[in-house]
Simulated assay, not measured.
Amino acid sequence: MSSARTLPWDWYPGTIPDNVVLADDTYIETSLSFELCRSQAPVGLRLGRGSAVYKDTMFDLGVHGRVEVGEYALIHGARIVCDAELKIGNYTLISWQVVLMDTYRLPFDLIERRQALERAAHTPTRSPSADIPAQPIWIQDNVWIGFDACILPGVTIGEGAIVGARSVVTQDVPPYTVVAGNPARVVRHLDAGGITRGIDHEK
């Protein structure tokens, strides 16, 4: 990265925000990943040693959003929505079109949601917003999240877990398990060396 916080290979004419902290060997494919980064935290994003962020990844960070990415983690085309805190562990793989969201940003209540949409119609960005509390997400080390998966607010994914493609994760995932489905359920147990046994659904 240059002193002007631009990427020499970047096709997009953007810059890396000042509150994004990179290791010397971190790789970011394009500054477009930060077009929705509005974090005003002293460190809005920290990328660990050997980590890589590839094309189509988008850091959609609110003003208080803080994201920490561990060492040798790889993010390829994910949408990371963070209004509070989101941690991604070491050696984690996040596939394309994965959504990680620590907030819904709009209320479930119908009347309140309509009011937020009406307010958005009169703002310059036309972006709806409401005072919705965020619930941090923690993805621990050595996790693999398959494509199109969605991780919802407040979820912790345990070390060594695998999230199947197109799964919707609504609750914590135990370490060294495979989860799949909507909502995601444990379908297999793992150990540090690989698959050990399946789940007996008849019990």
Rank of each mutant, 00 (worst) to 15 (best):
M1Y: 10
S2A: 03
S3P: 13
L7W: 09
P8N: 07
P13L: 02
T15D: 03
V20D: 08
V21E: 14
A23T: 02
T26Y: 13
I28L: 10
E29S: 15
E29V: 11
S31A: 06
R38L: 12
S39I: 08
S39M: 11
S39G: 06
Q40I: 02
A41V: 05
L45S: 11
R46D: 10
R46M: 11
G50T: 10
S51P: 09
A52T: 12
Y54P: 09
K55H: 10
T57E: 13
F59Q: 08
E68D: 07
E68W: 06
G70T: 03
G70D: 00
L74F: 06
I75G: 04
I75W: 10
H76V: 04
I80H: 05
V81P: 14
D83T: 02
D83Q: 03
A84H: 03
E85R: 09
Y91N: 07
Y91Q: 01
T92K: 11
L93E: 15
L93H: 14
M101C: 09
M101S: 14
D102P: 04
D102Y: 08
Y104I: 11
L106V: 13
P107K: 01
L110S: 15
A120T: 07
H122C: 15
H122T: 15
T123S: 05
T125Y: 00
S127C: 13
A130Q: 03
I137Q: 11
Q140F: 09
D141G: 06
D141H: 02
F147G: 15
A149W: 06
C150G: 15
I151F: 01
L152Q: 13
V155G: 12
T156Q: 14
I157S: 12
G160R: 07
A161D: 08
A161G: 13
I162Y: 05
A165E: 00
S167L: 02
S167M: 11
V169T: 00
T170R: 01
V173S: 05
Y176H: 04
Y176C: 08
T177M: 12
T177I: 04
V178S: 07
V178N: 05
A180E: 00
G181P: 04
R185G: 02
R185H: 09
V186G: 14
V187F: 12
G194W: 12
G194S: 02
T196S: 10
D200I: 02
H201E: 00
H201Y: 09
H201C: 08
E202G: 02
